[in-house]
Design a protein around this nucleic acid. Structure first.
Lengths: 229, 229
DNA sequence: ACATTCTATATTCCATCCATAATCAAATGT
DNA sequence: ACATTTGATTATGGATGGAATATAGAATGT
């Protein structure tokens, strides 16, 4: 048998379908913070039962997207200014480590991948969802080279939980232009294998984002309650 | 109505019961890395159906304790030397931040809590499971003072995923003695509000643990596959 | 009028049952 | 003898229905 291509069309489970649909809705704002999510209703809408929906919600709960209180259901989590600031601080700590490990390991393919995402970004134009995804691919193409699976997992979690807010950052044309410029500067530093400069440019990138994001976020609400003991 | 005590005896859901039972078994080694976990079998054993077991497994999957491949079931994840090293490195980065933020905020109650865990530890004697739990309470009593919920969540995840191995570290009387000594030294630095010294002592504490743990771990297996896409 | 208890409703949580995908062994063909 | 295909078995993933819990509103008492 020949080596079959990258990832074959596996029969998608209902869980996977529901999960990616809920993620999309959380990202594009069709489901808002504070909204309750009713497994039965979602299931009916998507043509599945409540069971796989509940499993999807457990996963989203683990990622911090929704909160659950026993017998009271699921609610979309809110991130206030403190939450966003904290998440960006953690990202700063972990991404610096990822970059340090990644830069020396980058091979030709990785560099090509990075350059191509920059090109894609230019082509994406004003499609904000697309831009958010490409932006993410750019940064993770770098992180992945570090070959630190646990670190990567945590970074994915952190990006996931703030994707929704990052999308709003890209709504203004001014910010879209700026992001492209910053990516180019980061890319130059990467090509020079200048670790410290990459870290610095990425810090500036993050700093501008978080400063703007803070304007969008809810002033300060009490932190979402823990769950499931 | 009077304010009712800390946390009232809520009617535990089957999910919660299964989840804590599975956690216990993962911790004390009754379920070993590589073992498959069959929802139906576990459910029958615990007197519940497969449904809540599967939800519990989704949560454990999110925490990295088990892996799942669609239609192929759940398997307890293995941590090799690389995994443990990586996890301890991430802990180092994040715990340093937690300590920096926590120390200035510690109040009298927090200090009392910390001291009491040290006393408990002395009393625990040779009960390794108990010691593991108290050890954990000591460190998290400190981290919690930082009031960084997301950071705390990640740290809990990291500790969870390596609890199993940490327990084996405490099996030798020599290590048990050492841990007590190290806690005392950390405590002294805390009482002096000497941030840098706390960080340094905690680093030594971790370093000794990871050096020993590496002896227990599997040499190197390929990393566990991702899941659920 | 206010607080408390009772009742009705909605929704969660879970047990049972079933369809489908994956696995293993036997059978077939080259 | 070896690879491939077929068929039987097992466990997963999901649908349906029902018991238990929380919530909101009505009824009752002070």
């Amino acid at each position: 048998m020949v080596a079959l291509m990258g990832s074959f069309e596996r029969p998608m489970t209902a869980l996977q379908a529901v999960l990616s649909e809920l993620r999309r809705r959380l990202l594009d704002g069709r489901i808002q913070p504070g909204d309750p999510i009713r497994p039965d209703a979602v299931g009916e809408e998507l043509g599945v039962s409540a069971v796989p929906v509940r499993e999807a919600l457990r996963i989203l709960e683990g990622e911090g997207h929704v909160t659950n209180r026993p017998h009271r259901g699921y609610v979309v989590a809110e991130l206030d200014i403190d939450d966003l600031t904290e998440i960006y601080r953690i990202r700063e700590l972990l991404e610096e480590e990822a970059v340090r490990r990644a830069i020396p390991k980058l091979d030709a393919d990785d560099l090509a991948e990075l350059r191509s995402t920059i090109a894609e970004m230019a082509k994406a134009g004003d499609d904000v969802v697309e831009l958010t995804e490409v932006n993410r691919r750019f940064h993770f193409a770098l992180f992945e080279a570090a070959e630190l699976p646990h670190l990567l997992r945590i970074l994915r979690m952190l990006w996931d939980s703030s994707d929704r807010y990052r999308l709003r950052y890209l709504i203004t044309p001014e910010n879209r232009r700026l992001v492209q410029e910053q990516h180019r500067r980061i890319m130059e530093a990467i090509e020079d294998r200048d670790v410290e400069r990459v870290i610095k440019e990425k810090s500036l990138h993050r700093a501008h984002a978080i400063d703007t994001l803070i304007g969008f976020a809810d002033p300060v609400s009490e932190s979402a309650a823990e769950a499931v003991g």
